[in-house]
């Protein structure tokens, strides 16, 4: 899973010209330009640190909130094999969250602070998880399409200039690629199954296709962060290019499944060598990003409830650890 929020309009300044840079900043930019990695102890511009912290923590939040849509079907998975695979997948997402929070912590914020930002609604997570999973086919569609889109986005991040993030993404991408295959495999079983199963697959595809295309973020012309993020080698491929790549890869997969693309304007464009699509409903995108999607309130409330109801458990763990330390000191004395 991932977040599209890295490209939402914000207040990041444009890259400074070399002449205006301090010696530290020139050294930093030289490392980045030479495809070197920036590590936690290295000097970095404050805006670079902030941009990354926001991006990585939002990515972590997306993994954590991303456990809900699919988690919704674990108890009802239609076979024990599918149940086991789905549990493993949702577990991976929790693991990605943990991994990414750790990477973000190297930039100077604690996991508790990041979670507080999520719980208060200040921090965002990928909007796609504000859509409901209404049937089992949604689990297949999420794996195939949402994780497929995530991989498109994340592969370039494996070369991101910030070392801890780049390394985290290498592992995350490997697991996401398994997730995508299992999603496609669910869709394949449904499409080769009974007419009702096939119908379920088409219905899920119809509902997820457009939100997934929106996942890549606003068109390049409206994407404020991209120029600076590109100079810093955080964001390496533009939203529109990634979206196009995803469409070009996914259309033949849908054809293989025998699913109709829910876009009457979809057509191969031989001149461009790409598929053309109909207009994306950006009003819907912004509506969901800004809090009025189908499940924004519910997802956040679930997250907050888990955190608050777990407080006494975390307090107990801390109290026990304190007692253990006190006992160890007493024994040593």
């Amino acid at each position: 899973m991932y977040t599209q929020m890295m490209d939402l309009p914000g207040q990041v300044s444009k890259g400074a010209a070399a002449a205006d840079m301090s010696a530290e900043e020139r050294a930093f930019q030289a490392t980045v330009d030479a495809e070197g990695k920036i590590e936690p102890r290295d000097w970095m511009p404050e805006a670079y640190r902030k941009t990354l912290l926001r991006q990585i923590s939002q990515h972590a939040h997306s993994e954590v909130v991303g456990m809900y849509p699919e988690g919704n079907w674990i108890s009802r998975a239609p076979s024990l094999k599918r149940k086991a695979i789905l549990i493993a997948k949702v577990q991976d997402e929790g693991g990605h969250g943990l991994y990414l929070y750790s990477a973000a912590e190297t930039l100077g914020q604690s996991r508790d602070q990041m979670m507080a930002a999520l719980n208060s609604g200040r921090a965002k997570y990928s909007s796609i998880f504000n859509y409901p999973t209404l049937t089992w086919a949604d689990v297949g569609a999420i794996g195939w399409l949402v994780d497929g889109a995530a991989i498109m986005n994340q592969i370039p991040l494996c070369r991101c200039s910030y070392g801890p993030y780049a390394r985290a993404m290498i592992r995350v991408c490997k697991e996401e690629s398994f997730h995508q295959r299992q999603g496609f495999d669910i869709m394949l079983a449904l499409c080769r199954g009974t007419p009702r199963q096939k119908e379920m697959a088409q219905d899920a595809f119809n509902r997820w296709w457009w939100p997934v295309l929106q996942m890549f973020g606003p068109p390049d012309k409206d994407s404020v962060h991209s120029a600076q993020s590109a100079a810093w080698k955080i964001k390496r491929v533009s939203n529109d290019d990634l979206r196009q790549k995803f469409i070009d890869v996914t259309v033949p997969q849908a054809e293989l499944l025998g699913l109709a693309i829910p876009d009457p304007e979809l057509a191969w464009n031989p001149e461009r060598g790409h598929y053309d699509i109909g207009a994306i409903d950006w009003d819907e995108f912004w509506r969901v990003v800004n809090g009025d999607g189908p499940l924004n309130r519910e997802r956040l409330a679930t997250r907050v409830a888990a955190y608050e109801e777990g407080q006494w458990v975390r307090d107990a763990a801390v109290a026990y650890a304190d007692k253990q330390r006190a006992r160890a000191r007493k024994e040593a004395a």
């Binding site: 954590v64 456990m67 549990i87 949702v90 577990q91 943990l98 929070y101 888990a306 109801e309 458990v313």
Partner: peptide
Amino acid sequence: LGHSPALEED
């Protein structure tokens, strides 16, 4: 899953 007191416990 998703409702534990800490991510480690999820």
